[in-house]
Design a protein around this nucleic acid. Sequence first.
DNA 1: TTTCAACACTACCACGTTTTCGTAAACCAA
DNA 2: TTGGTTTACGAAAACGTGGTAGTGTTGAAA
Lengths: 343, 343
Amino acid sequence: MKRKITLKQIAKELDVSISTVSKSLRNSLEIGEETRLKVQAFAKFYNYKPNNIALSLKNRKTKSIGIIIPEIVHYFFSTVINGIEQVANENGYSVVICLSDDSFDKEVLNMEMLANGSIDGFIMSLSKETQFKGDFHHITEVINQGMPVVMFDRVTNDILCDKVIIDDKAAAYEAVQSLIDNGRKKIALVTTVDYVSVGKLRTDGYEKALLDNGIPFNEDLIIKIEDVDTCEITISQLLHDRAFDAVFAVNELFAVTIIKTASKMGLKVPEDLAVIAFTDGIISKYSTPSITTVSQSGEKMGNKAAKMLIERLEAEHDDDEEENENYTTEVIETHLIKRESTD
Amino acid sequence: MKRKITLKQIAKELDVSISTVSKSLRNSLEIGEETRLKVQAFAKFYNYKPNNIALSLKNRKTKSIGIIIPEIVHYFFSTVINGIEQVANENGYSVVICLSDDSFDKEVLNMEMLANGSIDGFIMSLSKETQFKGDFHHITEVINQGMPVVMFDRVTNDILCDKVIIDDKAAAYEAVQSLIDNGRKKIALVTTVDYVSVGKLRTDGYEKALLDNGIPFNEDLIIKIEDVDTCEITISQLLHDRAFDAVFAVNELFAVTIIKTASKMGLKVPEDLAVIAFTDGIISKYSTPSITTVSQSGEKMGNKAAKMLIERLEAEHDDDEEENENYTTEVIETHLIKRESTD
DNA sequence: TTTCAACACTACCACGTTTTCGTAAACCAA
DNA sequence: TTGGTTTACGAAAACGTGGTAGTGTTGAAA
């Protein structure tokens, strides 16, 4: 149980000053070769590594970035983390992750916890509750303190900062258009409640695709689901009435639930019902039939977000107080992955 | 762009000493009421929060725990993180996550990066490569420095530390036994290569269940898969020969691949082929047919691991150098979740 | 008037590092 | 010897915090 060795201990042991040790280890020319090598050998032997905390305090840089997301047991978010971690790691940064559980309070608490020096910048996706409340003071506060924030996926226009998103509206449009191209006329939209920004945008794209193709927009075909487990009744009722022959679901969980419900009722996918889902995840790939999806590469989003954040962090370092806040919003391209659930 | 305020700045502004400010904020009786309230009001106005880095340096406690896992886009691991984060958060700890990508070098690098003061303790699951090499010096080193380590799932006997595992052998035994109870005789085992500790244990349980029931153990029925994407040929060949009527897969990805392959060949699950998988994940739940699984609650493992680590961290603090290293290994119970893939 | 406690606050140290500045000794030139 | 330069190192400040010890003033008891 030998604690990590410090400069001070080395100095004491070799009977030199702390500065001498520090300089020797950084190969300063100020120190004579004999002393320098002696110190280096000693340090190597005791496996000296500078203490990160002390360095952080001194440099006012922690070399770690905070991630705040609603949940982690979630294919999309975990791919984003993966993407962030990759470029973070390449650049010598660690990632510290906090989960908001889609709760506003937890989001605020976590941000405050991390904002007091623990990290250099944030990458975050808003919790549902935050989007619902529209209260972003915790984020503006952090930004005002000079801490860069990059938002992804679930963003808001009320905050000025770097953002990484996909063109939800265009992607939804493309998906619905492809259903129409296959001759579908009664296309349902299965979505979440409106305050989640992406849900709204996808709805917009859905509507536009319909109207552009001369298909009337029918409110009854928009099914808003708050809880996956209780939605089966609604869906089976609509299926029973043959109210629709295609469905665009805003996530793959909804899609697979619909397919299962349809199968139970003897309907065939894609013959009787075509299905497209947003978010290309593991379920879509392995479900039977496998599901056609709009892929939103979480990994790419993570890569991009991390790059943007780190760039800003390093730039800040250079020209200190330049305040050139030209925030950008990166749009990650999506594409349709055709599988068995559509023809 | 106002930087966070510090004790020093408050002191200067109010023309008192730093100590006075510090004590006022901690409600020390040493400070007169007038000054105390004045300082507190000022601090509140400027939203003073102590700097975590400075506190960490002073207290030699970072209040954060490091997690090292092979991958994060992985249902089981993400549930474990979720579990860890829950109790970490409850106890005022942050989690910093590093991914080894199943690479030994990255595992070592990440550990070294975090071990230099960034965290108070580790929770980790070994990378495949590390298990293969059997080289654990990076872990022993960390432990020798007095930093507690809790391992979960992919553990090793070569390291003395707290561990959280499931009884892989017993769980596998139970699964196979249930297949036998349903009249299955030719039970295949689809597993990974041996050096992953859990793979080995599950194989042992499989074998024991067979032998206990007087069923000969047949090497040919053990299918070792290294790459999921290329295994279909092997499986379809064996299925074609009707070599087995039930299969126990060590993860759900293998299971769903087998089911898909069987379905393509016109075999019915579970009538012609019963399937049980290890790891109760999202795929098993939503695949068609849904898959009977051995649930290993990642969340519980995470909870337990975090509890063990934090307990050790707080204990350490009290009796400094007591060195009472009574390491324990917690076994999380599993249970069979019966779904449509078995009868 | 002296003494002593209570009060209200300040000084100082430590945590581990880097860096700026300072200085003693040694060397060289005049 | 004197003055100046180089060599080789040390002292100290700074980052922000919190605890212990110390200090000066005041009022009251002896």
